[in-house]
Every structure is written in structure tokens, then in C-alpha cells.
């Protein structure tokens, strides 16, 4: 039994008076795919941002491979090199070509030579069907292509964990598939993934563990078959029924 990659213990976080995370306990193992679902405002995105140290937590602790990374004042950059993040609205850098978007961090953060970074970026773009877009600027790409570039950009740092924050929520329905294919491929490589999503069918198919969040707490967790078919908590059942009624499962 290897140690969990991430251990969260009693993680609390509030924005002003608003308590967003209310005591989260969670273990994420190496190679596990953990999906966070739940109503808007339940704390899914905030939890992901805390794992990447984009948001400092107020209480509790987050351990990465047994090391506490939630110590106030810790240098976040070594953690971020290991924990990549992809955002709902892509957040590509609009003033840079696709290739420059991808090579920026390897060059500036890892100190790779430009030529090396470009070669590796080229390989990644090729792998995700974006080789012909290397010289394009982000606003010339479709949403699906932009999101795939964002994933490649995060992968260029060769992270051990990838956090995916509702990465299909801004996409036109017909573009969702190409992005989800990328996630399936990442899962196949054995990468540890933590994703927040509204794509319930995908969550059911891909996840090892599903967590239902509500009001900043994990109110249900377990294997997807069980969580989706016979949830223990009434509120999780309610949420899932609403989702089923709206035709998203």
C-alpha cells in the first residue's frame, strides 16, 4: 500500500463571511481519478484551487506525498510544478502563439533551453492533434482546440497530478467529446487526476472515486456505480435526481 499522493484533513476556507470549504477530508492515491460533482457554489473549484495553492486555506492541512504544503508562507512554485491545473475558461495567453503558450513555463520555470522546450512541446501538440496549430494564436482556435492547448500547456511541466476545473463547461456540446478523449488518454497513462465536472456520464465512466460536494462538505463519496445508483445521503440523492431529470445523466 503506497502512501496517498494527496491527503486533505479538515480543510476549511472562507471568503469573507462565506464559508466555502467546511472541513474537507480526502485522500487521493497515485494514479487515482477523483471526480468532484455537486451544485454550483458547492466548493468544487475552490477545492481544486487550494490543491494548486492558488488559494491559501484557513485551517486544516494538505499533504502532498506526506509533506504539508499548506504551511502559511510556503513557496508555492515547487508544488505547482508537480500539480498542473486546467481552467474552465482555458486562460490561454492571448498575446502568445500556441507554441509559446506551451513553452513559457518549461523555459522560465524549469530552465529548459528554448530548442528543447520547443521540441517537447511539438511532440505533445502532435500527440493531441494540434501540431498544425503551433504557430496560431489562441483566438483563432475553436473552444475545444483551446482547451486541448491548455491541457498540453499544463502537461509540458510533466506534472504528477493534473487538476481539471470544469474544463468542458465553456464548450459547445459538439466540442466536449474531443476534450474528454484527451482526459481518457491521460487516465490511460496512469496520471493522477482530480476533476470538477458537470458531465455526469463522463464522471461515471472515468472516475475511480466520485465525491459529491454540497455547502463545502463532501456529503457522499465512493465508487461511481454506487454513488450514482444508491447514494446514502438524502441530499446527494436529491442532487442526482435533479441532474437525471435535466437529462445530464
Amino acid at each position: 500500500m503506497t502512501a496517498p499522493r494527496f491527503s486533505l484533513r479538515g480543510v476549511r476556507k472562507s471568503f469573507g463571511d462565506h464559508l466555502v470549504l467546511d472541513g474537507i477530508d480526502l485522500e487521493i492515491n497515485v494514479g487515482e481519478v477523483v471526480t468532484l460533482i455537486g451544485p454550483s457554489g458547492s466548493g468544487k473549484s475552490t477545492l481544486l484551487r487550494c490543491l494548486n495553492l492558488l488559494e491559501p486555506i484557513d485551517d486544516g492541512e494538505i499533504l502532498l506525498d506526506g509533506v504539508d504544503i499548506s504551511v502559511p508562507g510556503i513557496d508555492p512554485n515547487p508544488v505547482r510544478r508537480r500539480v498542473g491545473m486546467v481552467f474552465q475558461s482555458y486562460n490561454l495567453f492571448p498575446h502568445m502563439s500556441v507554441l509559446d503558450n506551451v513553452t513559457l513555463a518549461p523555459v522560465r520555470v524549469l530552465g529548459q533551453e528554448h530548442s528543447v522546450a520547443r521540441e517537447r512541446a511539438g511532440v505533445l501538440l502532435e500527440r493531441f492533434g494540434l501540431a498544425d496549430k503551433a504557430a496560431s494564436y489562441p483566438d483563432r482556435l475553436s473552444g475545444g482546440q483551446q482547451q486541448r492547448v491548455a491541457i498540453v500547456r499544463a502537461l509540458a511541466l510533466e506534472p504528477e497530478i493534473l487538476l481539471l476545473d470544469e474544463i468542458t463547461s465553456s464548450l459547445d456540446p459538439e466540442l466536449v467529446g474531443e476534450v474528454l478523449d484527451v482526459v481518457r488518454e491521460l487516465k490511460a497513462t496512469g496520471m493522477t487526476l482530480v476533476l470538477a465536472t458537470h458531465e455526469m456520464g463522463f464522471a461515471r465512466e472515468t472516475s475511480d472515486t466520485v465525491c459529491v460536494l454540497d455547502g463545502g462538505r463532501i456529503i457522499e463519496r465512493g465508487a461511481p456505480e454506487r454513488v450514482f445508483s444508491q447514494p446514502d445521503s438524502a441530499r446527494a440523492r436529491q442532487f442526482l435526481e435533479r441532474v437525471i431529470r435535466s437529462g445530464r445523466l
Binding site: 492558488l54 508555492p76 505547482r80 513555463a105
Partner: peptide, 11 residues
Amino acid sequence: SQRAAARSLGL
């Protein structure tokens, strides 16, 4: 969000 993306990459 641009700053968040940059910081998330370790810059």
C-alpha cells in the same frame, strides 16, 4: 484568470 493561469504554471 490570466495571473491565475501563469501562477498555476509555477511562474
